[in-house]
Computed example of a mutant assay.
Amino acid sequence: MAAPQDGPWLDGAAGRLVRPYTVSNGRTRPTTAMDLLSLVMATGTTPVGYLGPEHSEVLDLCVEPTSVAEVAGHLRLPAAVTKVLLSDLVDCGAITTKPPMFHENPTDRSLLEAVLDGLRRQL
């Protein structure tokens, strides 16, 4: 059985009742370039017109800078679908996006070792 906050979109036994491509109206390509580490944040601007319940969820998640991967995880949607939803919100000015921030070199050995150490601790 679905949790009350899940509404009609999820069923505990069956999972998601609406196919991901339906959430994005069949679109597979976002209009804004972003990767999984891009940070998105709500601007406070209210979107004009109806966008959908997932868009509202995204705005709630993006009160503070949040990565695209985190948003996808919270929504339980594929990254490609999440990027389409995010680009809708960027297009109407409701969120902003910026590339991930690396210190000086994204392939810096110490940075990569720190990430690897963190992953090992999680296992």
Rank of each mutant, 00 (worst) to 15 (best):
R16A: 08
V71Y: 04
D91R: 05
L86F: 12
V68C: 06
S67N: 05
L119S: 04
H103G: 15
D35Q: 14
L51G: 12
A79S: 10
N25T: 12
T96R: 11
L116W: 00
V23I: 15
T32R: 14
L61H: 06
D35E: 14
A69V: 11
L111P: 07
A72T: 09
D35V: 14
L75A: 13
E54Y: 15
G118H: 02
D117L: 00
E70F: 01
G44W: 01
A80T: 15
E54M: 07
A69S: 11
T45D: 10
M34F: 09
A114T: 13
E57P: 01
T43Q: 03
S67F: 03
A33V: 11
L112W: 00
T97P: 03
A72G: 05
N25M: 11
A114L: 14
P4H: 11
M34N: 09
R27A: 12
A14T: 06
Y50S: 12
V18F: 07
G7C: 01
T22H: 08
L119A: 02
V84S: 12
T22V: 13
G15S: 11
P53V: 06
V71M: 06
D91V: 04
A114I: 06
A79L: 11
L75F: 09
G44S: 09
E70Q: 13
G15D: 06
D60K: 11
A79I: 10
A14R: 01
M34E: 07
P100G: 05
L112R: 04
D6L: 10
T96A: 01
I95T: 14
E104R: 06
P4L: 10
S38H: 02
E70P: 03
M34W: 04
P100A: 04
A3G: 12
M41F: 13
A69W: 02
H55C: 05
V23R: 05
V90T: 02
L37I: 06
L61R: 08
G118N: 12
C92W: 07
A14H: 05
A3D: 15
T45I: 14
G44M: 04
A94E: 08
L75V: 15
G49F: 09
D11W: 09
T45A: 15
E113S: 02
N105M: 15
T43K: 04
A42T: 00
D6V: 10
T22C: 09
T32I: 14
Y50F: 06
G49W: 05
P100Q: 04
T97N: 03
V23D: 05
P20D: 09
R29V: 15
A80R: 15
D60Q: 06
L36W: 13
M101V: 06
A114K: 11
L10A: 13
G12H: 00
V90W: 01
L116I: 07
P8C: 03
G118F: 03
R19A: 10
D6R: 05
H74N: 07
L86C: 06
G52T: 01
C92P: 12
T45K: 14
P65V: 01
V18Y: 02
L77T: 14
K83L: 03
E57L: 13
C62A: 10
D60Y: 01
D35H: 13
F102G: 12
A69N: 02
V84N: 09
P53H: 10
A79V: 14
P30V: 00
S87L: 07
V23H: 12
H55A: 08
